[in-house]
Design a protein around this nucleic acid. Structure first.
Length: 270
DNA sequence: TCCTATGTTGTATG
DNA sequence: ACATACAACATAGG
């Protein structure tokens, strides 16, 4: 599930554990979410450490602990974070549990495309610092987008929007939502977009990110879905209709992912 | 049985 | 070296 705003939502879920000490660490050491991670070091360093702060960028989360310890989490396709009672017993898919006095902070992922990273040091790890500037930051300029589309000229625009190196946090549903709002066909080669279309695309990237973060990454305790006026709730319905035109939506694999678009407003330009 | 799934990455090919 | 396409990863559910 998790794209930009959902990642922010799950990050905040662990907020009740801020400023609290980790009494014990429970984990499934051979689970593939720990690939490339030193689980012994993680266990040693986090036991007795205090959760100080957290952040989200793109689809990554970073949790900072006392003792210069950094825990990175990626939710993959099916990951989630929850807060459970202090005596919670981890089940099959609860791969990492940070047990505190009054609660357990739990990372679960049944499909295990997610990932746990751990490191120590005075500064945040390199993989975190090198995440592309957020779409809602000033560094996400029209120029940067135009240059990127030019370099990926022959790829369908849908595939380009999924590239985290320029569109951090955008995933399959957000990409479709952005293209639908911008009235651009997902198969349109990135290099064939007119300057006015690139400008619209840039604008809709920011609009969808801002709205999604307000709606989903906000203060609500529940993960809520975008409203019926968005493409989102219609994209998986069989025989679903475009909320702007009423025309039947189409679905097809584009850029390796199932893509939904409204043929009445997203026209492929030759 | 076969297909799907809101993600990333390694590898092959051009 | 760079851009592009796609299988692979692991699991559950329809």
């Amino acid at each position: 599930m998790p794209e930009l705003a959902e990642v922010e939502f799950y990050r905040k879920r662990w907020n009740p554990g801020l400023k609290q000490k980790v009494a014990a660490v429970l984990l499934h050491p051979s689970a593939s979410v720990f690939r490339g991670c030193d689980v012994n070091l993680l266990e040693d360093q986090l036991t007795g450490a205090t959760l100080l702060s957290s952040g989200a960028a793109a689809k990554q989360m970073l949790f900072r602990f006392s003792g210069d310890a950094w825990l990175g989490l990626h939710l993959g396709m099916t990951g989630e974070l929850t807060v459970q009672p202090a005596d919670f017993e981890p089940r099959k898919h609860d791969h990492l549990v940070l047990r505190q006095r009054d609660r357990s902070l739990v990372f679960s992922d049944h499909r295990m495309f997610g990932r746990v990273q751990f490191s120590t040091g005075a500064d945040a790890p390199d993989w975190w610092s090198s995440i592309a500037p957020a779409i809602l930051s000033d560094a996400f300029t029209l120029d940067a987008v135009a240059t990127f589309l030019h370099r990926r000229a022959r790829s369908p625009i849908k595939a380009v929007l999924l590239m985290q190196e320029r569109f951090p946090g955008i995933g399959n549903w957000m990409a479709d939502e952005i293209l639908w709002r911008a009235a651009i066909h997902p198969k349109q080669p990135a290099g064939t977009l007119m300057p006015a279309q690139i400008k619209t695309l840039h604008k809709e990237c920011r609009w969808v990110c801002r709205q999604a973060l307000e709606m989903i990454g906000g203060e609500s305790a529940e993960l809520c879905d975008p409203p019926k006026t968005w493409l989102f709730p219609h994209r998986w319905e069989d025989g679903g209709s475009c909320p702007k035109t009423g025309a039947k939506l189409l679905r097809e694999q584009i850029g390796g992912r199932t893509t939904c678009w409204s043929p009445a407003r997203q026209i492929l330009v030759a």
